[in-house]
Design a protein around this nucleic acid. Structure first.
Lengths: 246, 246
DNA sequence: TAGGTACTTATGTCTAGACAAACTGTTGAC
DNA sequence: GTCAACAGTTTGTCTAGACATAAGTACCTA
């Protein structure tokens, strides 16, 4: 419960906003342990004056960290550092990105890449008229040379140009982002069922092995449907980790 | 891509902050369709003046809705309504709350309620010394008189007083909140496996039926571990719905 | 016609202050 | 001694402006 006089260098000629400079530096000190859990920050008036900022600007820095769960505020009491928990709300990342980051050497086998009319249920999710042609994609994802997931994707044509070579080298979401699409929001449903014979064969699992299923619809920043996915994962080798806030 | 002059009544005597009054009313109009998707809002200066607010206050309203994905802003361009997607980031709600809301008539059977030392792995998650006594709770959850989930929970003693009668009537999280605990962040892991014989019996499923598994650790606003849960759900009757942002 | 320059428009950042409301601890009355 | 009223501290909300910066548009020139 100590209280440290805080000194943060601020570069007013930088294009990085002042509130963000402060927020970043505070975040670094908290996650590095330099600012221990339980530490009380000085009050906003004093802090703003010491850093040479207005209170609203300083408040904005603190607000950013409160939103991210690194600080707690109580009116009449003060602002305090709390445990820096894992706190990545399972971003809109694809399996490929996750595996790369974890050093799992992902590999993708493109089983099918076509432009054709999807099943009506998929057309509905994609918000296109039944019969409209879209990308239909079937891929098998490996990690460390072990099959991990069997993935079906549907994308409207016109957002991004796909070919097998690119898909083998990069994740789908990387390609979308590179094409200037801003992934914004996704709704997904996670369930489980036993593998069909074909799935068991593809994933190198015994018949009836438990699989995790994931259905996902992704929207961009203006509300367009960008992708619909329907995937199955080997439950013996995969689980979804996620962090909820609030 | 129309642009409507916006008029919102503001009650300055209300204890509800002005920015929130505006945000709520805007949200209502967007989700109700009154403000159609694609509608451009007037610029902030004009809007602030029309509503009799300062620009920072109005901006705060808009910011709130941008964060929630109902509006998009582009510098130099303006602010626009986007698709009001489902928008429920799978809050920190318990199964009981979810079922109640959905009108599924949840019922809870308390199979075990004890205070004892948990397995060491659980003690680690709870951040207590091995051998420390905690609440150990085993419950069977029904929806519409069908068994749905078998739930194991571990809680530090001292946060809340538990008894069978209360647990049968309310969800665990309701009890925690009522005891003044602020649930803040949870990390969970979702997987799948086949049911053991005992689980199959309790859940009225055939042997080897696929089950969804969920392990969850919940922290409060000052970083204390509040609850550790380890649950299994009938995959035939349950799936996790969640929304990811950003 | 193609290209860039300048202008307009709208959001992004920042300042300096004011008053309100919640929490804490202390003082005073009974 | 106990409890309630009060004062001090700190965050919450709000105002009225200023200047910066990005995006789009219109125009002018090569």
């Amino acid at each position: 419960m100590t209280e440290t006089p805080l000194s943060i260098p601020i570069d007013r000629s930088s294009p990085v906003p002042l509130y963000f400079q402060v927020a970043q530096e505070l975040e670094r000190r908290i996650t590095s342990g330099e600012l221990a859990v339980g530490t009380r920050l000085e009050n906003e008036l004093v802090l703003a004056e010491r850093l040479g900022l207005s209170r609203p600007t300083l408040r904005r820095s603190i607000e950013y960290l409160v939103d991210r769960g690194l600080l707690v505020r109580k009116r009449g009491v003060g602002t305090q550092v709390v445990m820096p928990r894992v706190r990545r709300p399972l971003e809109l990342s694809s399996l490929y990105d996750d595996l790369s980051r974890a050093g799992e050497h992902p590999r993708t086998e493109v089983l099918r890449l076509a432009v054709e009319a999807p099943p009506d249920a998929v057309a509905t999710l994609l918000e296109v008229d039944p019969g409209t042609e879209v990308y239909v994609l079937e891929r098998l994802r490996y990690a460390r040379d072990e099959p991990l997931a069997l993935m079906h994707n549907y994308l409207p044509v016109g957002l991004v140009g796909l070919d097998e070579e690119k898909l083998a080298r990069q994740g789908l979401y990387q390609l979308l982002r590179a094409a200037g699409v801003t992934l914004k929001i996704a709704s997904q449903s996670i369930g489980a069922r036993n593998a069909t014979a074909a799935e068991a064969r593809a994933l190198d699992e015994p018949r009836g092995a438990p699989l995790l299923t994931m259905e996902r619809t992704v929207y961009d920043d203006v509300g367009r449907v960008v992708e619909v996915g329907s995937h199955v994962y080997r439950a013996s080798r995969y689980s979804f980790e996620l962090t909820l806030t609030d």
